[in-house]
């Protein structure tokens, strides 16, 4: 019997990465800035996105959102109230979105052309682990963290925070009653992703939103 070693050197997620590269090129050609929003369940991604869509539309920006959940279209219905086109992706048990799901849901999305958008937001499935492995071709990956979650979340989930381009702290309006230690949270985020832009926001009061929208506009015009 002959046994031998065959070198493969193949990326396990090669198919996803290749499709993500195609999507990235497509977004670039269309001139749309794509953001992938990742956090735990309950951080307030949907409320933050709702506010972002509303505020951007008020400024005349053309926006749309894809929203991932295991089940239900509750988030899509909530977000649609902003007036922006929204499409739900149900993963039926899968813990993350992948490039293929994005590709399929962009195809045949009635009334939505990438070329006619300024921003496309992708709200990932609430999960701080699995989404970090899957490139969706996004221009900016945003890690969100709420004041109720504990300041050490970035230390517990370094994989995601280290791969993020921006961090958003949500629910700042209840920071004080929650005993949120702001300095510690900022320090922990910086320890995992040195120099990352951090936005301290409240979807309820609108605090921090101006800075966030300015950042989006600057990133789009880069």
């Amino acid at each position: 019997m002959t046994t031998r070693i065959v070198e493969l050197r193949r990326g396990i997620l090669k198919k996803n990465d290749e499709l993500a590269a195609v999507l990235r090129q497509r977004y670039g050609a269309a001139g749309v800035l794509v953001l992938n929003l990742v956090s735990s369940p309950g951080t307030g991604k949907t409320a933050f996105l709702e506010r972002t869509l509303r505020d951007l539309r008020a400024k005349g920006a053309r926006v749309a959102a894809l929203v991932g959940d295991l089940e239900t279209d509750n988030d899509a219905r909530r977000l649609a109230a902003s007036g922006a086109p929204v499409r739900q992706i149900n993963t039926h048990g899968i813990c993350h979105l992948d490039a293929d799901m994005i590709d399929k849901h962009l195809a045949g999305w009635e009334g939505v052309e990438l070329g006619a958008l300024d921003y496309l937001f992708i709200e990932n499935v609430g999960n701080l682990v699995c989404p970090s492995s899957y490139d969706l071709g996004e221009g900016i990956r945003v890690a969100l963290l709420s004041v109720t979650e504990g300041e050490d979340k970035p230390l517990k989930y370094p994989t995601l925070f280290n791969s993020a381009d921006a961090a958003v702290i949500t629910k700042m309006d209840i920071a004080e009653p929650c005993g949120f230690n702001r300095e510690l949270a900022l320090k922990n985020i910086n320890e995992i992703r040195p120099g990352i832009r951090i936005f301290e926001t409240s979807a309820k009061t609108g605090v921090g939103m101006d800075e966030w929208l300015e950042y989006l506009s600057a990133q789009r015009n880069r």
């Binding site: 019997m1 002959t2 046994t3 031998r4 070693i5 065959v6 070198e7 493969l8 050197r9 193949r10 990326g11 396990i12 997620l13 492995s133 280290n162 791969s163 910086n190 320890e191 992703r193 040195p194 120099g195 990352i196």
Partner: peptide, 20 residues
Amino acid sequence: PCSDLRQGRELEIEAIEIED
């Protein structure tokens, strides 16, 4: 502080050992 990652996100099949 360092933000320039050079290694650590690998997820690949390096090789297989087969019996002909």
